[in-house]
Computed example of a mutant assay.
Amino acid sequence: MKQDSIMVVHPDDRSRQTAEIMRRFNDVFQNHDPSALPGLVAEDCVIENTVPAPDGARHAGREACVGLWSAIASEPGTRFDIEETFVAGERATIRWRYWPADGNSIRGVNLMRVADGLIVEAMGYVKG
């Protein structure tokens, strides 16, 4: 079940553009459909994710980032509840709860950065 989430957007054009990109990005995970990712991710995108602990892994380049996010978005029996997205300029913070197939949830946050209409940076953190 898709949970309604809050999106707070700073009132300027750049923030509105970033908010639209974050909406489309979040939809990938809500709808389990990664097909939009190549059009959202910059060629030089970098992800620092949450595993392996304690420092996570670094994924660089469009292919690596789209591959990682596609695998997460299409994982059977999982869901993301987007709790809040806050956008100011080129930056966004997404607060979420992830429900893996085993039913035990994980809470986390992504710090995102957009440049020229594409995601260029994502840093993920989870509550331990």
Rank of each mutant, 00 (worst) to 15 (best):
M123I: 14
N104S: 15
T93M: 08
A92L: 09
G89D: 04
E48K: 10
A71E: 11
L111F: 05
A36K: 10
P38Y: 00
V51E: 02
A101Q: 10
Y98M: 05
F29E: 03
P76I: 00
T85K: 00
R91Q: 12
A88Q: 14
A92Y: 06
T85E: 01
A57L: 05
H32N: 09
P100M: 07
V120T: 00
M112A: 09
F25R: 12
V41A: 03
A115M: 05
I119P: 00
P54I: 05
D116T: 13
R91E: 08
D102T: 15
M112N: 04
C65N: 03
V51N: 05
C65R: 01
N49I: 07
I47K: 01
D102W: 10
A71R: 13
Y125Q: 01
T78D: 06
G56M: 12
Y98A: 07
V66G: 12
A115E: 07
V109I: 11
E63R: 05
R24K: 09
V51F: 05
D81L: 11
N49Y: 09
A42S: 15
I72K: 00
P76R: 02
P54D: 04
P38L: 11
R24N: 09
C45N: 04
A115F: 11
F80Y: 13
N104Q: 15
G61E: 04
D55N: 15
D81H: 08
I82M: 07
R23F: 07
D44P: 14
R24T: 08
I119L: 15
N31A: 15
M123D: 13
T93P: 00
H32C: 14
N104A: 14
G103N: 10
C65Y: 04
V51I: 01
E63L: 10
F29K: 04
E43V: 12
V41T: 03
